[in-house]
Amino acid sequence: MNHLQDVPLAKAYLLLNHGPSTLVTSEHAGVANVMAAAWVMPLDFDPPKLLLVLDRNTWSRHLVEGAGTFVIQLPSRRQAELTLAVGSSNGGELDKFARYDIAHGRARQVQAPVVEGCLAYLECKVIAEPHNQEKYDLFIAEVVAAYADERVFSKGRWHFPDEESRTIHYQAGGAFFATGEAFQVVKAEA
């Protein structure tokens, strides 16, 4: 995790704007879990907020409700197999960190593990909205820390040096695609 640089919180939304699959880590009462989540999106700039859909039947939901915090991580293409594995198993039935031999460290601002080797991290505190959580499984959270691998995200932009360092997007049935080629468009004068 040597190449991590802080991302200004007002720019944290740029880490999620391209809609990648994510890993969500959480911990409560000494029990930790990691799950895959595709339904995560930026919500606001200042303070930065995001939305996360957490089905009421997931083990992570129980931990997030207990702790009030979680971490969103952006895995790379080289972590697609891990992403599928943690998204296809139940943390209430097994310790995914042990079962899949997941290297991990600790979050900087919240009480949760972080999966080593991810491209970016957003540490979050839940903003309690019981109606949204119960009716829609929708969690609103404030981003309290954001950092990314400077080799793929710097100066507010994603730039992928190789195929294995791209963010991934889950379709279904084990099918992913990697983020494509970036290009710039100059706004035409009116």
Rank of each mutant, 00 (worst) to 15 (best):
A128D: 15
Y170H: 12
A10P: 01
G117K: 02
P8T: 02
P48G: 05
V7I: 14
V53G: 02
A107P: 05
A190K: 13
A107D: 01
Y121L: 11
A98T: 13
Q5F: 00
H159T: 04
E164S: 12
L84C: 01
W39A: 10
E129G: 00
V114F: 07
A190I: 09
F176Q: 07
M41A: 14
A178M: 14
K187F: 02
R77H: 11
V7F: 04
R78Q: 15
A29C: 06
F183C: 13
A32F: 03
E93K: 15
R77C: 09
G30K: 12
V152P: 00
S154Y: 02
L52R: 01
A38R: 07
V126I: 14
G91L: 09
Q79H: 09
L43R: 10
Q109V: 08
A36H: 14
R106T: 09
V144A: 14
I127G: 01
V114C: 06
Y121V: 10
T167W: 10
A37I: 13
P20E: 10
V53F: 08
K155I: 00
W59H: 15
F177N: 09
A67E: 07
N33P: 06
W39K: 03
R106D: 10
P47W: 09
Q184D: 12
A32Y: 00
D137M: 02
V185Q: 13
A145V: 03
T83H: 05
V152A: 02
S76D: 07
H28V: 09
Y13L: 03
D46I: 08
A10W: 03
P75C: 13
N33E: 03
E181I: 15
V64M: 10
K49F: 05
G68N: 04
G92M: 04
H28C: 15
L84Q: 13
N90G: 00
G92D: 04
E181C: 12
N2F: 00
A178V: 15
H28Q: 11
A182N: 13
G68D: 02
F153H: 01
P113C: 09
M35E: 00
A32V: 03
F160K: 03
D162W: 05
H131S: 05
H131K: 12
R56P: 00
A128I: 01
H169P: 05
A141R: 07
L82N: 12
N57F: 09
E189C: 12
L63Y: 07
L50R: 06
L119H: 10
A36C: 11
T22M: 08
L52F: 01
P20S: 14
H159R: 14
A103S: 12
V86N: 11
A182C: 07
P48K: 07
P8W: 02
D95Q: 05
M41L: 13
P20H: 15
F160M: 13
F45C: 07
H28N: 14
R99L: 08
L122V: 03
V114E: 07
V114K: 06
A112N: 06
D149Y: 01
A182W: 10
I140V: 15
T25A: 11
N132R: 08
A107V: 05
Q184Y: 06
Y147S: 08
S76W: 02
A103P: 03
V126S: 11
